[in-house]
């Protein structure tokens, strides 16, 4: 068994207790939320009797340990329960909304990496130059502008005033039908189905929200790239390389850059995870049917099943993400590579 396979397996095993913990904690936390969901969902004119009926239907008449046993049993059978606020099975809803959020977040990250990495690296190589100042200005602007503001500002300029961007109506304009569901990523699915027009439509819808998120995620990535690059450039091996007369190009883009990538990847992982949960405001502004707005709405009305499902899905995603980052590390880090 190769080292990498062993690493993957041990990581997966390590994740099991964490997931069990997440199941218990999410159950306990939702029960600690203020408010009585049965009363809420019975509606404003409900009688005692109809509230009691809903309480039974939701299983809330049982004791807490019994409720947990039911929840755990359903979970093992792959049933995450029904969300009362949206009226849909939680699993179905997550399967539909998670790809929407992932598509948006990944596009935003690609976009911000494409800008932030060259910017950060150049800023570090030419420290104190105008490009360094430009980088600093962009980073400051990126963190200090809240996403809902950037989102509305972008809509105002590019949709309302200029008319370049399509209507901010979610993932697809109504002239298109959603592509056959394979990955849940509309652009990818449409391309796989050979439908370039729909792919183009989905891509156009993505541009504004992805730019909004990219502007926000740009800051930590660019900053980390610059800092890591500066550190690498001032290290001993670079001095040795310089002394050995290697070309500036080779020093910067081969030795320094590769070493600087490790902290950047770690940062990327962190940025990805918080963006996925924290893009609620972008989702609201662009009517994006993502997972963030789903979770927040469920939380507000104490919709237990939906909140638990969301927390669990995020936990699984984080575990998977950390796994991927560890694997990427072994690819990038020469020290782990030699032992395979």
């Amino acid at each position: 068994m190769g080292q990498r396979t062993r690493l993957v397996l041990s990581r997966m095993l390590q994740a099991l207790p964490a997931l069990a913990g997440v199941v218990i904690v999410s159950f306990a936390l939702t029960r600690m939320l203020p408010g009585d969901p049965a009363v809420y969902f019975a509606g404003p004119a409900a009688t005692e009797q109809s509230i009691a009926q809903i309480r039974v239907a939701m299983g809330l008449d049982l004791s807490l340990p019994m409720q947990f046993l039911h929840y755990a049993r359903d979970l093992l059978m792959g049933d995450l329960g029904n969300s009362l606020s949206t009226g849909q099975p939680v699993l179905e809803e997550l399967a539909r909304r998670l790809p929407a959020s992932l598509e948006l977040t990944l596009t935003a990250l690609l976009l911000s990496c494409a800008i932030a990495l060259p910017l950060g690296v150049t800023a570090a190589v030419h420290q104190g130059s105008w490009i360094d100042h430009a980088c600093r200005a962009l980073v400051t602007a990126g963190v200090s502008l809240p996403t809902f503001f950037t989102g509305i500002a972008l809509i105002y300029v590019f949709y309302y005033l200029l008319g370049w961007a399509p209507a901010p109506l979610g993932r697809l304009d109504f002239v298109y039908l959603s592509p056959p569901d394979v990955t849940g990523f509309y652009v990818v699915d449409a391309l796989m189905a050979g439908d370039f027009e729909t792919a183009g439509g989905a891509m156009r819808q993505l541009i504004l929200p992805a730019s909004t998120l990219a502007l926000f995620t740009l800051a930590p990535i660019a900053r980390m790239a610059r800092a890591a690059m500066l550190e690498a450039l001032s290290s001993d091996y670079i001095r040795t390389a310089k002394a050995a007369g290697l070309s500036q190009r080779k020093i910067v883009y081969f030795y320094a850059f590769q070493n600087a990538m490790l902290p950047v990847i770690t940062t990327l992982g962190m940025v990805f995870s918080f963006t996925l949960g924290a893009n609620v405001l972008v989702e609201k502004v662009f009517s994006w049917p993502g997972i963030g707005s789903y979770a927040v709405e469920a939380l507000v009305v104490s919709d237990y099943a939906a909140v638990q499902g969301f927390v669990l899905a995020m936990a699984i995603l984080f575990v998977a993400l950390n796994l991927v980052i560890d694997i990427v590390y072994t690819l990038v880090d020469p020290r782990t590579r030699s032992t395979t």
């Binding site: 509305i152 809509i155 901010p168 979610g170 109504f174 609201k284 502004v285 662009f286 009517s287 707005s293």
Partner: peptide, 8 residues
């Protein structure tokens, strides 16, 4: 269409 943001 469901468009949550009144500004949008």
């Amino acid at each position: 269409r469901e468009v949550p943001s009144p500004a949008t």
